[in-house]
Simulated scan of single mutants.
Amino acid sequence: MTEQAQAQASAEAVTAALHDVAALGGFFVLPVGGPDEGWHPLDRASACGFTDLSAAVARRYRTGEPRIGVSIAHLGHAARLWSPALACVLLHGIVPDLTELQRADDGPALRLPRPAGWCAERLPDPALALNEQVMRHLRALEAGLRVKIAPRLLDGNAASALVGSAHVLLSARPELREPLTDLTTRLLGTGRLAGTGVITGPDLTFRRRSCCLYYRAPNGSKCGDCCLADRDGPSA
């Protein structure tokens, strides 16, 4: 029996954990089960490069620059992956198995058709397992993109989404500061997230080394963690 098989959590425990962290709101919502109508495999959406969501974002922000829509859609998707997974690990000691994730036909929402996951304490490296559950989906989306985007911009998006999720969790559960900061820091040093930015304060403020391009949209601005935030003018 493999280490992951030995670490498997019960379906009931995974479902309860995801239900609990959904109360944190927004990006932490990851429903389990329900009717199949209206959902399709996330891998299929990723293989198409999220062209529908990217176009919708571009229309919403009234930009004719396709890569802005792609980047913002990617950033939102990363937040929807990190938020429930990170909260489940910190609050319930469970790394959810995101392999079979599905995406809504009419928007960015995600769901799991069946609950699965692992008890973090039984895994040899919970942070590495969590990283892989999220980053595999972001790699798949990157491979399917129809618009050329700098890989380090996408890595910066993944890091920004991670720290943003951690910041929301810290605000809701300040007693988690130490383990949350430790896990977030460890994740920021793992794989492609390494070198994407640095935590700058005890409240998980962050400065990334790339830009999500939101400032290039009409009425857009530089985000709080943007590498351009202290510069007088934007760079391309």
Rank of each mutant, 00 (worst) to 15 (best):
A172C: 09
R231D: 13
T205I: 04
D155F: 00
V70L: 05
D106Y: 00
T184E: 06
A194Q: 15
G49W: 09
A150Q: 13
G201A: 14
P115C: 01
G26T: 00
G191K: 10
D97H: 05
A5V: 07
L170Y: 14
I199R: 14
P31S: 09
G233I: 05
L162Q: 05
Q102E: 15
G233V: 09
A56M: 06
L138H: 01
E121S: 11
A150E: 11
G69H: 06
A129N: 04
G144M: 07
S10F: 02
L53A: 13
E132H: 11
L188K: 04
P35F: 03
F206N: 03
G195F: 02
P31K: 03
P113W: 02
H137F: 00
A161Y: 01
S221K: 14
K222Q: 10
T200Q: 15
R186V: 14
T196S: 15
L188E: 02
L145E: 06
P96S: 04
D225G: 07
A16I: 03
A5F: 01
Q133N: 11
F206Y: 15
P41N: 08
T51F: 09
C88T: 03
A236R: 11
G93R: 03
P124C: 01
A5N: 05
P151D: 04
L145D: 07
D52V: 12
H77I: 02
L180Y: 12
L176A: 15
P218G: 04
T181K: 14
Q8C: 06
R186Q: 15
L145F: 03
L90M: 14
R186D: 14
H167V: 07
W82G: 02
L141P: 03
D52K: 09
S71Y: 01
D125K: 08
V89G: 02
E175W: 12
G76P: 01
G164R: 12
W118M: 01
A79F: 00
I72Q: 14
S83R: 01
V70H: 06
A78Y: 00
G117L: 01
R186F: 06
D106R: 08
W82C: 00
R111V: 03
H92Q: 04
G33N: 09
L187R: 05
P234Q: 11
P66C: 00
G189V: 09
E37W: 05
L145N: 05
A159P: 00
S54C: 03
R60Q: 14
V147G: 08
T181D: 14
I94E: 08
S160Y: 01
